[in-house]
Amino acid sequence: MPEPLLSVRHLTKTYPARRGQKLIAVNDVSFSIDRGEAFGLVGESGCGKSTIARLIMGLEKADSGEICLDGENLLSLRETQRRPHRPRYQMVFQDAASSLNPRRRVRDLIRDPMVEHHILSGDALNARVDALLSMVGLHPDMAQRYPHEFSGGQKQRLCIARALSLNPELLVLDEPVSALDVSIQAQILNLLRDLQKQLHLTYLFIGHGLGAVRYVCDRIAVMYMGRIMESGDSETLFSSPMHPYTLALADASPSADIRLRGRARIALRGEMEDVPQTGCPLYHRCPAAEEACQTRSTALEEIAPGHWTACRRARLLREETNA
């Protein structure tokens, strides 16, 4: 089996919180992404998915764990040692508007990273900027403009072009469409899918709704309170989710899929609360919770090939739902 392009092992990140407590943003998370694969991370706001993106990109320091790109642990490198590796993994942020320096022309914005990393120079550089703009569906003439002259969707296209300029292998997409109009979202998602095929990119796609993530990704992991609740390939996860949280997430998003209608719906109670110290983090909100869930630990368990879930009642629950 080939080595995965990115593998994250036992990643943990905590933040100091009130009264000397710690907020565990990412709790012992492990996953790996193969070359050419699109992997999705889904979960509600605050579940730690964006923190994982920032940890991978080195924008924040992890408490413990490993992030290996092609076998090399990025967390053991100093920033100066990391810099030559930087072009290999790039990030697209949720808020495209603030991702572009308002005082610089598009041509300079896209060109600077390539100049810095000595990728191209002279006329070839300008030609490359034009090519990148066309690649993301913008006109090369737009290179002379300033970012504020573009619409939200166009700005996100610019960010994608800038990220692609360094020929990355891995693209970390942190909710790239969440801030856009629904009609624009589909365009950007299509663009991302096309680019992935065309350039053989590997994606880590972060989103809060299953719909967009499922559209782009081959495999999905569902996160809740800093932990992975369930992971598997997107079709399986979508058509036969095992974890109550995944079920609730799927039910929360309206679906045009007729097969899913009429199925018993699962709704969570209440809001995210303090993480229970032991047992299942979803315990307080889970409609299927029983006494034992409060104390028994919930490690990921492979219940079907490639399909992992952290719910000890998953099998039982599924039978109940189908009955």
Binding site: G58, Q90, F93, N101
Partner: peptide
């Protein structure tokens, strides 16, 4: 804290670029 400085960091842009080309003009 803005994304454009973050994206400079993730693009591996050096400190002098971030300070003098991005932060200073703003």
């Amino acid at each position: 804290e803005t994304n454009f400085i973050r994206s400079d960091i993730t693009s591996g842009m050096p400190r002098r670029y971030i300070l003098f080309r991005e932060i200073l003009p703003n």
